[in-house]
């Protein structure tokens, strides 16, 4: 009897929820805003789907309906990735200055 690959993915998913649960509870409350901006940035890893959607299609035609949506998603995710990581960096840098002052 073989196990459906879906079950493996489901296992990864469930275990990741638990990992997320314990990791996020250990985040200090003063960093909750950077937590939100960084989760925002990493959830934009959805860009991998967008890349496949826009590049893996029919090679004679760069823009068909499916790939246009892929490209649009790439732009959105790119805004988020750069914006999310950089704004997190900017915030975290502020927490750094304090240490030096002391």
């Amino acid at each position: 009897m073989e196990i459906d690959p879906f079950i493996f993915r489901l296992s990864i998913f469930i275990l990741s929820i638990f990992v997320g649960y314990y990791v996020v509870w250990s985040v200090t409350p003063s960093l909750h805003t950077p937590l939100m901006s960084v989760t925002n940035a990493i959830s934009s890893v959805i860009i991998v789907g967008a890349i496949i959607a826009s590049l893996a299609g029919n090679s004679n035609q760069v823009f068909d309906t499916a790939s246009i949506f892929g490209y649009l998603a790439i732009i959105l995710a790119a805004v988020n990735i750069f914006g999310g990581f950089l704004v997190t960096q900017r915030m975290l840098a502020m927490y750094k200055k304090k240490k030096k002052d002391k």
Binding site: R9, I12, T39, V45, I46, G49
Partner: peptide, 29 residues
């Protein structure tokens, strides 16, 4: 959760893990 849903569709581990992390993070907050 949306990212995780797409992750299942695309059978992509990075998306599934990330989706679960972000989903539970937001829920805890």
């Amino acid at each position: 959760w949306a990212a995780a849903g797409i992750g299942f569709t695309l059978e992509n581990t990075a998306l599934i893990i990330t989706g679960a992390l972000v989903g539970s993070s937001g829920a805890i907050l």
